[in-house]
Design a protein around this nucleic acid. Sequence first.
DNA 1: ACGTATTTGTTCGTATGTATC
DNA 2: GGATACATACGAACAAATACG
Lengths: 248, 248
Amino acid sequence: MSLDDARLLQRNAQIPVWRQIETDLTVEIRSGLIAPGEKLPSEHEFSQRYGVNRHTVRVALARLARNGLVVAVQGKGVFVSGTGPVEYRLNKDAKWSEVEKQFAASPGGRLIAVSECPATRRIAEHLRIDEGAPLLVTETLRVASAGIATYSYHFFEKARFAGLDTAFERLSSFTEALAEYGVTDFTRASTWIDCRIPRPREADALDIPVETPVLVMMYVDQDRDGRPIFFSHSVIPTTRMVLRVDTA
Amino acid sequence: MSLDDARLLQRNAQIPVWRQIETDLTVEIRSGLIAPGEKLPSEHEFSQRYGVNRHTVRVALARLARNGLVVAVQGKGVFVSGTGPVEYRLNKDAKWSEVEKQFAASPGGRLIAVSECPATRRIAEHLRIDEGAPLLVTETLRVASAGIATYSYHFFEKARFAGLDTAFERLSSFTEALAEYGVTDFTRASTWIDCRIPRPREADALDIPVETPVLVMMYVDQDRDGRPIFFSHSVIPTTRMVLRVDTA
DNA sequence: ACGTATTTGTTCGTATGTATC
DNA sequence: GGATACATACGAACAAATACG
């Protein structure tokens, strides 16, 4: 709204008008243009500005409320939810356990599935092993707080880390499980960031609607000597989290 | 498919089966599990594995093709597009012009819209100006190659950069336009990364379907002395691009 | 040059559920 | 409640391009 107004709306388009308003307001709120705690314009004012019926505005606002972005108070107005997004900082110490620390949460990883597959070319390059070498693949759900969670796929060289899945199941933490394999310190080397629609089972586990996009981090962690430890995909819901990169 | 198979499908769910297959294959391709140039299983084989009709598979594949992820050749098969994703590297020299250099493209920014608005609290903090101070807001589309593009919102302090929009229109580049204001060197300080569904006009300009999510970078660029120059949102389609962060 | 198998591309038809008026 | 339109999913058949012996 600060940028423009009803010109944004496409009537007779393939997208319903209420959804356009929803994404529009989502942009404003998530980007911080409207600060947490601030009051939104009234439904009546929205309907005037966008040139739509008040009911159409209400559909959009109801969805924002359902996603936890706003809270409606009868007789007062609609307010942006109090807390801003949690920042997942990308630096060489980037780990999920670092996020858990912010919430004083104990390691609470849950092992969803374990499988094996041969290393594809890309993963083999990252782990500096032979293409086709057997990999141990884990799917884990790690939750620090409501809405603060990741669904991760970890790829380990099977020959080196056989049984790591049971160690994780016992300790609920990769950091601690890896310690049993002599890996006491590891750091993040490179991270690739992508986004997509979640798979049904990911959305289920993360407890988010299947239509809301998620961030995907792909990264390699290595030990002090630069030797690769594992390759990972982490699916991150963005309703209450953002990634942050500082380039000092 | 390497991780699991038809168990992934949710029948009678709110999400169509073809979309589930689409996201599934998108994951495999974009994450590099299936390498560029590789041949996908045949439509018949997919329909067997997923337990669906061949038409259903074709809908998914058609969408992947439209997004440029795969290329179908009659009589041969469907192949993952030859080139891997372009990496937009996040470091202190992160600029769109750096991406353009990779394609030997001349600056080709197009000014979509210009507006003004008062600085919200968050923007005021980033630019270290007073809340409510007038801002110059530009919307630009910058294309380096097919699918390699950004739709950006730039927020400038109006008092300092009045007329910058016309300078950009003339020079097609912020780097060059800012030089006329005595800003010869600027670097990236912090970046926040989020993702969402694009606005209709963003999807139009970037030539992507309205349902495919986009990455959003929010960042502050500053001059050599650490003085903020501008705040920006950049919308990045991810069919052919990923962000990359190196944490050395 | 020919026949065959494989694979994508296209066109019918049928059924079902959902949204809309 | 009824009528309509649309999206989803399945089935069968055929056309066209490719590969191979």
